[in-house]
């Protein structure tokens, strides 16, 4: 599903404390691609991701998801939009503490009429043998895998990842990125990933660099570098 952003503005605060976080962002993200939003802290990348995810509203501008205009949606429709089209992965894994790995993934499956097969998903995530463990019995990487499983099991057309490796070590980060890459390849969903790690730009089809709320560059990679070959 193609995503089109038109002149997105967003400010926080009032009066003298008003800060413009996004200053007219416009871009198009192609269906089935991996898009990396790069930028230093405070550049507005997470805010942009949240606006795309419908959990924050833009002060100005339009977002089109396929043919649908996001700005026209009310809270109920937004909730339905997220339920149907989006998968979310955060830096903090936010797993339900009293549910096992398998059940946490089921939390995502519940939202879909046609979810992916749970056992296959557990195998793909490498969590089969951990499926009955509680989140507090897992490592950070395993928790993030679970959270990715929860996001993708409902076959979202867009997978939004906010610093998914921000809390992980190098090796685990790589494993998670490989997983995201594999999900994109096998499921064909559009992946939009926020990161401040410049090295990740190579794994993307499109790299948008933000600084001070504006797009500094918007480039496409002719050929993505497999995550396996990335180093930082």
């Amino acid at each position: 599903m193609e995503l089109k952003l038109e002149n997105i503005h967003k400010s926080f605060g009032i009066g003298e404390n008003r800060t413009e976080v996004l200053k007219g962002i416009s871009c198009t993200i192609e269906s089935g691609s991996i898009c990396v939003l790069l930028g230093p802290s405070g550049s507005g990348k997470s805010t942009l991701l949240n606006i795309i995810g419908g959990i924050e509203t833009a002060d100005e501008g339009n977002i089109y998801i396929g043919e649908e205009k996001l700005g026209n949606m009310r809270e109920k429709s937004l909730s339905q939009y997220r339920r149907k089209h989006l998968g979310y992965v955060f830096q903090a894994y936010n797993l339900v503490p009293d549910l096992t790995v398998k059940e946490n993934i089921e939390v995502g499956a519940y939202l879909s009429d046609d979810p992916m097969k749970l056992d296959e998903m557990l195998n793909m995530l490498g969590l089969w043998e951990h499926r009955d463990k509680m989140p507090n019995q897992l490592s950070g990487g395993q928790q993030q895998r679970t959270s990715i499983g929860r996001a993708i099991i409902k076959r979202p057309e867009i997978l939004l990842c906010d610093e998914p490796t921000g809390a992980l070590d190098y090796k685990t980060s790589k494993d998670i990125l490989k997983l995201i890459e594999e999900v994109n390849r096998t499921c064909g969903n559009t992946v939009i990933m926020v990161t401040h790690n410049d090295a990740l730009k190579s794994m993307a089809d499109r790299v948008i660099k933000l600084r001070d709320g504006s797009i500094r560059s918007n480039k496409t990679n002719e050929a993505r570098t497999p995550v396996e070959e990335l180093d930082w």
């Binding site: 109920k76 339905q80 989006l86 939390v107």
Partner: peptide, 16 residues
């Protein structure tokens, strides 16, 4: 205490 979970579930499409 479970604010993060609730935020994620809401962001994933769980209704209020």
């Amino acid at each position: 205490q479970e604010a993060g979970v609730i935020g994620t579930l809401r962001a994933s499409g769980y209704r209020r």
